[in-house]
């Protein structure tokens, strides 16, 4: 667990306040959406176990799902505003944009993982895997939002389009849920070095050692910025 109160270690800001807020909102809304959404696939045996209460539970399920859906849509708007109009957001999206280096990194990293290369490629602020995960939301969100709105207003749609919307909504939801569970959560909780929990999403900090190890190119940039700043002011402490 990262102990960001460790005085000997230097820490850098990995996620600022706005980014952490967005992550919390996403966590909460996606959590509710996955739970209330997949309740529709619930096993008959479980639903029957609840007997008469099932009807009430499912009534609130629908309402909660829609509230969480509105939350996620607001989050989408907040995030787009953030990456367009806020300075830190613009730097975020700029560092996040896919580059040719990412394809190269992916191949080289694969080579490293299967033992063909001696060392891992040097990653910048975001690795190709993080970028993939981030941009998959850009593809997934419009699909679930549009199909979700169609299902919400189903009385005004032809059955044909509703069937398509349902297939897309369910398919994308399953894909997203599996991606979060297999990829994101396993990494955050169980990846060696992170176990039992990578707490960056709580305090937003990342240690100098971790950055050196996981994002060496970013570290170089951070150092360069620091030195430039130290040139101006003598005090060149952590970026906060």
């Amino acid at each position: 667990m990262v102990n960001h109160t460790d005085k000997k270690m230097k820490y850098y800001v990995r996620l600022n306040k706005i980014e952490r807020f967005q992550h919390y909102l996403l966590m909460l809304s996606i959590g509710i959406l996955v739970m209330t959404g997949f309740m529709l696939e619930g096993e008959k045996i479980v639903i029957e176990f609840f007997g008469g209460a099932a009807k009430t539970i499912f009534y609130w399920r629908g309402i909660l799902h829609r509230i969480a859906a509105i939350m996620v849509m607001c989050l989408g708007a907040i995030h787009i505003y953030y990456i367009l109009f806020v300075r830190s957001g613009r730097s975020w999206i700029w560092d996040m944009l896919p580059r040719f280096k990412d394809a190269k990194d992916a191949v080289q990293n694969l080579g490293y993982l299967i033992g063909l290369r001696g060392e891992r490629p040097k990653f910048d602020r975001f690795t190709y895997a993080e970028k993939l995960e981030y941009f998959s939301i850009y593809i997934g969100m419009p699909i679930v939002i549009v199909s979700g709105i169609m299902l919400w207003t189903q009385s005004s749609w032809n059955r044909f389009y509703l069937d398509i919307a349902e297939a897309f909504h369910r398919g994308e939801a399953t894909l997203a849920a599996l991606a979060i569970m297999v990829w994101h959560i396993i990494t955050v909780f169980f990846k060696p070095g992170n176990y039992p929990l990578n707490t960056t999403f709580i305090h937003g900090m990342m240690s100098e050692d971790d950055i050196k190890h996981h994002h060496p190119l970013w570290y170089e940039r951070l150092r360069a910025e620091e030195e430039a700043e130290a040139g101006g002011k003598k005090e060149g402490d952590a970026l906060k």
Binding site: M181, V182, P196
Partner: peptide
């Protein structure tokens, strides 16, 4: 470790159910 085992098992069972 016990807590994380529980988390993992819950996780894996939801994954299997999906």
């Amino acid at each position: 470790n016990i807590l994380m085992t529980i988390v993992f098992l819950l996780h894996a069972s939801f994954f299997a159910w999906l």
